[in-house]
Design a protein around this nucleic acid. Sequence first.
DNA 1: GTCCATTTGTCCGTATGTATC
DNA 2: GGATACATACGGACAAATGGA
Lengths: 136, 136
Amino acid sequence: MAMIDHSADRAVFRQLADLLRDRIQSGELGPGEPLPSELRLAQDHGLSRTTVRQAIGQLRTEGLVTVDRPRGTFVRVPEPVQVVTLARGEHVGARMPTDAERRKHRLGEGVPVLVVTTPEGTETVHPADRVQLTRP
Amino acid sequence: MAMIDHSADRAVFRQLADLLRDRIQSGELGPGEPLPSELRLAQDHGLSRTTVRQAIGQLRTEGLVTVDRPRGTFVRVPEPVQVVTLARGEHVGARMPTDAERRKHRLGEGVPVLVVTTPEGTETVHPADRVQLTRP
DNA sequence: GTCCATTTGTCCGTATGTATC
DNA sequence: GGATACATACGGACAAATGGA
């Protein structure tokens, strides 16, 4: 098993996040598959549950995993993407939603929003996990 | 002073995050201004420093504040925005960067990246706090 | 339906390290 | 050196929701 180095420069919880991220991005943990439970990870690596939660929190903010409480933590499953066409003169930015916006649009953690601004200044917000913009 | 309701349905750290977010969005705490220290917030509201850190962590993931350790926690100052023109057929998405990408591009916490994909499939990433895309 | 084990969420306390002023 | 402030890591406790026996 991959190991954690307590004497390393990098924080322990970041090392654990790196390990789990690698397992996800390598495909060893596929979309929809559960991560080991927090208790299991803590025991396996000799860490406190607090530290394990920090690591998983990191992956949550990166949008790599979602939590279905209390069933477990799962590798995020990609949403079907809808393509939206940009009109002339429109600008596009991205930012994190506020807590209120997250609930309103039912956004998962770690999912930004795309903000489209018309030349008149009107803004529309799109969930970045379900929308792609295109210049035709 | 605004109060925390321990009997409320909403978690205490979320209530504190709400209070601080309101003070930022109302302009009472302007860009570049420091938040009260974690210890100060803990004492003022009768909370543990752990809980205060949870609240501030929430605002960090929302990109509302930045931490300059150990000077303090500050309301994020908007970056100068560079406008990038989209070519025909390009697609635009957004996602959170991984930890490695964050360090590579010197991205602040809570800042997504804009991902531009050419028709050939080449991807370029832009920090969403410094770049806006436009369809001319 | 009830009981119980599992799992995540929340909150507290403590300690130590590191960088700044 | 000392005080301040954030970062990391540990520990414990209880709550809430799920799922299986």
